[in-house]
């Protein structure tokens, strides 16, 4: 494949990853969020495979498959089941001040480009221009965790951050060494089981998954 085409394709997919990140930032329905998350995983997985093909890095195929199975199928499936079991699929979360959140998201993207510009200049890889997008995805995941109050939403924000990190590794260095990627995937899997257990604990204890109710531990005066 022509190197220019690849760079274009890479940027194109990066744009979609960022778009899904923004989509998640303001999506109110639970299923909608899970679907957006799965789409983001799919874009990442395709991107990884293309980069792996162009750079001739075969271990990226494994990462790509790992992403596909974990982030496109397994995690969304687990979330789906959890949402159904917990009967929160009809809940519509109130997202306060959508335009403001969007503006903050855009500011974070600009900030990421600024922060990454010295690093991008040093890089010679095809994928260098998407490093800033990756950081922006991490930051938007963080923003999502701050602005949203639902436990499931916060977890999806957390997973979106993880997606951003994976994307960063692909963009900056054609992926981390395989042993590290596998370890990170294992950690995410364990984390998935833990938050699954957690949802039930929170649900039975507080009768809702709104984390605002958890405000008993405060500094006393």
């Amino acid at each position: 494949m022509d190197i220019n085409v690849v760079a274009q394709l890479n940027s194109f997919l990066a744009a979609f990853v960022l778009l899904t990140a923004f989509g998640m930032l303001v999506q109110r329905r639970m299923y909608g969020l899970v679907h957006l998350f799965a789409w983001q995983g799919l874009f990442l997985s395709i991107n990884t495979a293309i980069v792996g093909f162009v750079a001739g890095k075969h271990h990226l195929y494994i990462s790509s498959l790992l992403t596909l199975s974990l982030k496109v199928f397994l995690l969304p499936y687990i979330l789906h089941v959890l949402i159904q079991r917990l009967k929160v699929h009809k809940e519509v979360e109130v997202v306060e001040n959508v335009p403001m959140t969007m503006l903050m998201g855009i500011a974070l993207v600009i900030f990421s480009y600024y922060l990454m510009s010295p690093v991008t200049q040093l890089s010679t890889l095809v994928t260098r221009s998407t490093l800033a997008v990756a950081l922006a995805t991490v930051m938007i995941g963080l923003l999502m965790m701050i602005t949203r109050k639902h436990a499931v939403t916060q977890i999806i924000g957390f997973l979106a951050m993880e997606n951003g990190l994976f994307f960063a590794a692909t963009s900056a260095t054609y992926g981390m060494p395989l042993v590290v990627e596998l370890g990170v995937a294992l950690d995410i899997l364990i984390a998935a089981f833990i938050f699954g257990i957690f949802f039930f604990h929170i649900h039975t204890t507080f009768d809702s998954l709104d984390v605002d109710q958890m405000a008993r531990l405060k500094e006393e005066d």
Binding site: M145, Q154, F158, I194, F195, F198, T205, M214, R216, L217
Partner: peptide, 16 residues
């Protein structure tokens, strides 16, 4: 309730 709150905070903040 307080233990669950503490653990959730621990999980989220340390994860981030």
């Amino acid at each position: 309730p307080t233990a669950i709150e503490a653990a959730w905070k621990y999980f989220i903040l340390c994860g981030v």
